[in-house]
């Protein structure tokens, strides 16, 4: 069970600024993709009336042709594949906070990814999701996950980021909102900063005032709204030390960057 008192402010309001910062360590990571046709489409099982009813107020048309031709893998299936890519998480490696991030909903299935992950992990992690922030949702997920760890004296955070390409409505065909394939990333992060250090190397805000520090920056792969920046990190040349990742949401006029220590992360031995 998650239990807490109200958080205590440690900085500002007459207190000396706290100079101590830390960045999370990437301990394990896995990226899985899927494309092509999935299960057969049966209108009787798909609740087409719900899909049309949900879209009507927004003047959007249900597109059976697009939906039937899509993979229709569940977001739980995508998240599960990425989680399995991490290998067994026992004892000291089990996450204490689990944050799911996505921009693309799973319209067909009522299963909650965060609850599913909690059910398949040891221990009693606090598990929830953040979304509806376009490509920046995984940055918020990292910030919130680390803040819960910091506040509770916890050490391990699991981020699971999902891009769901099966949508029952017409999707953007270009730009950062376009989804080329199903994709999910699982990231096991260690927070060594304890309760005193602040999250360093992080920013999220108006694009004209939010720039990553000078130096090499990992930018997203196209066609993967939320997993793209992590996919770029995991598919690139293995780095050591801190890696800075950044993304830009032009439609919201906002940008974000984060820093993770990738010096010790264990490469995923599985295939995409």
């Amino acid at each position: 069970m998650f239990r807490t008192t109200a958080p205590v402010r440690r900085r500002g309001a007459g207190h000396a600024p706290d100079p101590a910062t830390a960045v999370p360590r990437l301990v394990r990571a896995a990226w899985r993709t899927a494309s092509g046709p999935g299960r057969a489409y049966d209108p009787a099982e798909v609740h087409e009336d719900f899909l049309q009813e949900a879209a009507d107020p927004y003047g959007v048309e249900f597109r059976r042709d697009l939906f039937a031709a899509s993979g229709r893998r569940t977001s739980v299936e995508l998240a599960d594949a990425a989680l399995r890519g991490l290998g067994p998480l026992d004892g000291d490696e089990a996450p204490e906070v689990v944050v799911v991030a996505y921009a693309t909903p799973d319209f067909e299935h009522g299963e909650l990814v965060a609850a599913y992950l909690k059910h398949h992990l040891p221990g009693e992690p606090l598990a929830f999701a953040v979304s509806d922030q376009g490509v920046l949702a995984p940055f918020t997920a990292l910030r919130v996950g680390v803040e819960y760890a910091r506040r509770g004296g916890l050490r391990r955070v699991l981020l699971v980021v999902v891009d769901q390409s099966s949508q029952p409505y017409e999707m953007p065909s270009s730009g950062r909102d376009a989804v080329a394939e199903d994709s999910a990333v699982a990231l096991l992060l260690a927070w060594d900063g304890g309760q005193e250090a602040s999250l360093g190397g992080f920013g999220l805000g108006p694009a004209d005032r939010t720039a990553p520090p000078p130096g090499e920056v990992v930018r997203p792969l196209p066609g993967l709204p939320c997993t793209g920046v992590w996919a770029a990190l995991l598919s690139g040349t293995p780095a050591s030390g801190p890696a800075v990742l950044a993304d830009l949401d032009e439609s919201r006029g906002q940008a974000a960057y984060c820093t993770v220590d990738v010096g010790e992360w264990r490469a995923d031995a599985g295939t995409r």
Partner: peptide, 24 residues
């Protein structure tokens, strides 16, 4: 809401909160 529509986006704009980080 049909992707990529959200309520948070229009809310931030309508309420003069375009500078704020918004999410579900």
């Amino acid at each position: 809401l049909p992707y990529p529509l959200t309520s948070v986006g229009p809310l931030r704009e309508e309420l003069g909160l375009g500078h704020a980080a918004g999410f579900v």
